[in-house]
Amino acid sequence: MDVFMKGLSKAKEGVVAAAEKTKQGVAEAAGKTKEGVLYVGSKTKEGVVHGVATVAEKTKEQVTNVGGAVVTGVTAVAQKTVEGAGSIAAATGFVKKDQLGKNEEGAPQEGILEDMPVDPDNEAYEMPSEEGYQDYEPEA
């Protein structure tokens, strides 16, 4: 019985440690998101679009440190934060509304985080759909 109880105690310690790591990862992701939003706020009209992409990228980098179902929630929060940063930029006159959601080359930025393969159960990952990809044929 002692062996059984000791095993359960060790398992509990492992769960607590994993929860603490997840909590730490979420806190880091939130900190990076805040950094990115402050970065966007300090940019001029020309830099705002690039700044919004930076927020998304920093958040995406930190999301990889967070495991399990938390990833889905962090990704949703990050996307809403990026959308909010863009709205703030438009409201303050840093950028025109028609410039939001495009990178410096004018290509749409939507789907940055949505296409990231995420499995809350950590069982399997699927690649994003290939609808947006084109076949590449090298020139002879």
Rank of each mutant, 00 (worst) to 15 (best):
A17L: 04
A140N: 09
T44Q: 00
A140D: 14
K43T: 06
G86H: 13
A90Q: 11
A17W: 08
G84H: 09
M127C: 10
E61H: 04
M1H: 00
A78W: 10
A69I: 10
I88M: 08
D115L: 10
N65K: 08
V40Q: 03
M5A: 10
M5V: 06
G7M: 15
A89Q: 06
V40F: 11
K102E: 11
V48Q: 00
I112S: 14
N122C: 11
N103C: 08
E131P: 11
P138A: 12
K21C: 05
N65Q: 03
V52Y: 04
D119L: 04
E57W: 11
K43S: 03
L100R: 05
I112Q: 13
A17P: 01
Y136E: 03
A107C: 07
D135Y: 06
A69F: 09
K34W: 14
I88H: 04
Q24M: 06
V82C: 09
T44R: 00
D119Q: 08
T44I: 10
Y39N: 15
A17H: 10
V15S: 02
A90Y: 11
A53G: 07
L113V: 04
Q99Y: 12
K23M: 06
E20Y: 06
M116C: 06
P128Y: 06
E13Q: 07
V16S: 14
P138W: 10
V63A: 13
Q99N: 05
M5Y: 02
P108H: 08
N122Y: 14
G36C: 02
F4N: 01
L8H: 00
G86K: 09
V48H: 00
A107S: 08
E83R: 15
L8E: 02
V3P: 00
E46M: 11
A91Y: 03
D121V: 03
K80E: 00
N122R: 12
Q99P: 05
V118S: 06
A29D: 00
G67T: 06
T44V: 11
K6T: 13
A76L: 02
V95L: 09
Q109H: 07
V52L: 00
E126S: 05
G47A: 05
V15R: 01
S129I: 08
S129V: 11
E139F: 13
E104I: 07
A76D: 02
V55R: 00
G106V: 07
K102L: 02
G47Q: 07
V15A: 08
E130G: 06
K43A: 11
Y125R: 07
G84Q: 09
V63I: 13
T22E: 00
E139N: 11
P138C: 13
K45T: 07
V74Y: 09
G25I: 09
Y39W: 04
E139A: 15
E130C: 12
M5H: 00
P117D: 05
A90C: 12
K60D: 00
A124F: 13
T22K: 01
K97G: 04
A29T: 08
E126L: 12
K58G: 00
D98H: 14
S9D: 12
D98I: 13
Y39L: 04
V55C: 09
G67V: 07
T33N: 00
S129W: 04
G14H: 09
Y125C: 04
E105G: 04
F4G: 00
E123A: 01
D2S: 02
G36A: 13
G84A: 15
T81F: 06
P108C: 06
M1C: 00
E126G: 08
A91P: 11
G51L: 05
V55K: 03
A124D: 06
G93N: 06
Q99R: 05
T59P: 02
E57Y: 15
E130M: 10
E137L: 05
P128N: 08
A30S: 03
G86I: 01
K43N: 00
K45F: 14
M116Y: 09
G14S: 04
K10N: 15
V26G: 01
G51V: 14
T22P: 00
D98T: 07
Q134M: 08
V55E: 01
D2R: 09
K60G: 12
S42Q: 10
V95Q: 04
D119P: 09
G73V: 10
V37F: 07
G41D: 01
P138E: 13
G93S: 05
I88G: 05
S9N: 09
V77W: 11
L38S: 02
N103G: 08
E131S: 03
D115S: 11
T22C: 15
K43V: 11
A89N: 01
V118G: 07
E126Q: 01
A29R: 15
F94G: 06
K45Y: 09
S87E: 07
L113G: 15
L38M: 15
K12Y: 12
E114D: 12
Q79E: 14
A27I: 10
V52Q: 01
G51K: 09
F94I: 00
K34D: 01
V26A: 05
M5K: 04
M1G: 00
D135R: 08
V16N: 08
E104P: 10
G86D: 02
K32G: 12
H50S: 09
A90F: 15
G84P: 02
A30V: 08
S42I: 15
Q99L: 11
A56M: 14
E28Q: 06
A11Y: 08
F4P: 12
V26W: 11
G86Q: 10
G14F: 08
E130K: 12
Q62A: 07
T22H: 05
A124Y: 12
N122M: 15
A85W: 05
V48M: 08
K96D: 08
S42C: 07
E139C: 03
V77P: 07
G101H: 11
V55T: 02
E105R: 15
A30Q: 03
P138V: 10
E28P: 01
F4D: 01
A76E: 05
I88F: 13
V63K: 02
N103P: 04
K96Y: 04
M127R: 11
V70A: 03
V40P: 00
F4M: 11
E83C: 11
Q109P: 09
P108N: 13
Q24L: 07
Q134K: 13
M127G: 07
A29H: 01
Q99V: 12
A107H: 12
A90T: 08
D115C: 04
M127Y: 07
D135H: 02
E46C: 06
D121S: 08
T22M: 08
Y39G: 07
T75C: 07
S87G: 12
A90P: 00
A17F: 13
S42D: 09
M116K: 08
T33V: 06
L100S: 01
A89I: 09
M127E: 14
G93E: 08
V52E: 00
K12G: 01
M127Q: 10
G101F: 15
G132S: 12
G51N: 07
N122S: 14
V48G: 02
T33R: 01
V82F: 06
K32S: 14
G41H: 02
Q62M: 02
V40C: 06
V118M: 07
G36Y: 09
P117W: 05
A91G: 04
E131A: 13
A69S: 10
A124N: 12
V95S: 03
L100D: 15
V70Y: 02
G47N: 13
M127I: 10
A30T: 06
D115Q: 12
K102R: 07
P138H: 12
Y133I: 07
K23P: 00
Y133N: 14
A11P: 03
T72G: 10
Y136W: 08
A90V: 15
T22W: 12
